[in-house]
Structure formats: structure tokens, C-alpha cells
Simulated assay, not measured.
Amino acid sequence: MRHTISVLVENKFGVLARIAGLFSGRGFNIDTLNVAPTHDPELSRVTAVVRGDDAVLDQITKQLKKLINVVEVHDFQTGQAVSRELVLVKLKTDSGNRAEIIQICELFRAKIISVNHADVVAEITGDEGKIEAFLGLVEDFGIIELGRTGNLAMER
């Protein structure tokens, strides 16, 4: 089962290491991890997507709540949260395929943020399905470089 866990933490040294250690110590691989400050500079939000058994993840959630500097923990079930990811992708282009790449970007509401003779850089945000569909269409052009933020989730 796939879980999106959102942890609000105090912005203190070592908090992320303790959270990651809790998952790795129980044999869970973190699929995506996103950490950033909130509107309050004293707090950060850690969003992790993991796959695993519900009972074990319930235990990890309880243990996260006991960690020092953890303010709140949410394990979002399917449909409980709005989830998005940001991707920057640099694609090979030439005069023959640039128009087609631009058309695909428009279709997916991706922004082209840099254009050169041999490549373009596109920015796209969306859920995992949209991101994977977009990358599936543009990979044949040649992906030079790719960067993904990981999921960010917020309760509906």
C-alpha cells in the first residue's frame, strides 16, 4: 500500500535525520521526500511517500508523533489530500521537433522556461499520473537532464 505522510516539525538541526532513520530502521524505502519551511519560519513540513504494510506504517506514524521536535503527523489515505510534484526537464531539440515538443508542453500545461539551439527546459506540475504521462511522451525526444521535487501534499 502506498502512503503519503506529512510531518510538521520544528525547524531544528537533526530532525530530518531522525525521521528518515525511523523509516530506514524498519526497512521502508522512501519513494519521494520533500522538505521545506512553512509560512512560519520556526516550522518545516516533511512530506514522504512510502510503500508498505498498513499495520507497520501505523506503528511508524505513532512513533513519529513521539519524536522530539515533531508537531503533527498525518498519514493521508487515497483521496484525503491534494498532492502535486514539480519537474524540470531538459529535452534535446532541433528545428524539426521543437514545434512538436512545444505542442506537447501546451497540452500538459507545462511551461517552457528556457530555449537554446539544441535543447529546451520545461517545467511541469501535477499529480503522479500527469507527470508520468508527460515524461512518457517526451522521452523519445531525448531527456538530457531531469529534476523532480517529490510529492507535496495538503489535506483537502
Score class of each variant (00 low, 15 high):
111 K>R: 14
35 V>S: 08
141 F>M: 11
12 K>W: 00
150 G>H: 07
113 I>S: 01
7 V>H: 12
47 T>M: 10
63 Q>I: 02
88 L>Y: 15
96 G>R: 03
130 K>Q: 11
136 G>L: 04
34 N>E: 01
8 L>P: 07
10 E>Q: 14
76 F>H: 12
104 I>E: 06
101 I>M: 11
78 T>S: 10
90 K>F: 10
140 D>I: 12
133 A>I: 00
112 I>C: 09
12 K>M: 12
101 I>D: 02
73 V>G: 14
19 I>W: 06
87 V>H: 05
116 N>I: 00
31 D>Y: 07
87 V>A: 04
73 V>Y: 14
114 S>A: 13
49 V>W: 00
75 D>N: 14
44 S>I: 05
44 S>E: 10
60 I>K: 05
81 A>P: 03
118 A>Y: 02
72 E>P: 02
128 E>A: 08
7 V>L: 14
54 D>L: 05
125 T>A: 02
111 K>V: 02
3 H>D: 10
56 V>M: 09
136 G>N: 15
118 A>S: 13
103 Q>N: 14
97 N>G: 04
139 E>Q: 15
106 E>K: 15
153 A>F: 09
77 Q>E: 10
156 R>C: 04
121 V>P: 01
99 A>T: 07
51 R>M: 05
130 K>Y: 01
28 F>M: 04
70 V>N: 04
119 D>Y: 13
133 A>K: 13
96 G>M: 02
12 K>Q: 14
150 G>N: 05
13 F>G: 00
74 H>P: 02
122 A>W: 10
24 S>T: 14
40 D>L: 07
127 D>Q: 11
8 L>G: 08
71 V>Q: 14
31 D>W: 04
145 E>G: 10
115 V>K: 03
67 L>C: 09
87 V>T: 15
148 R>V: 09
7 V>A: 11
91 L>C: 07
55 A>S: 06
16 L>I: 13
77 Q>Y: 08
139 E>S: 14
7 V>P: 13
72 E>L: 09
136 G>Q: 02
71 V>W: 10
128 E>R: 10
12 K>P: 03
94 D>H: 09
115 V>E: 13
152 L>K: 03
136 G>Y: 02
46 V>A: 05
26 R>S: 11
127 D>H: 11
135 L>T: 05
98 R>N: 00
26 R>W: 13
30 I>D: 07
79 G>A: 05
67 L>F: 11
59 Q>G: 05
114 S>E: 13
51 R>Q: 11
96 G>A: 08
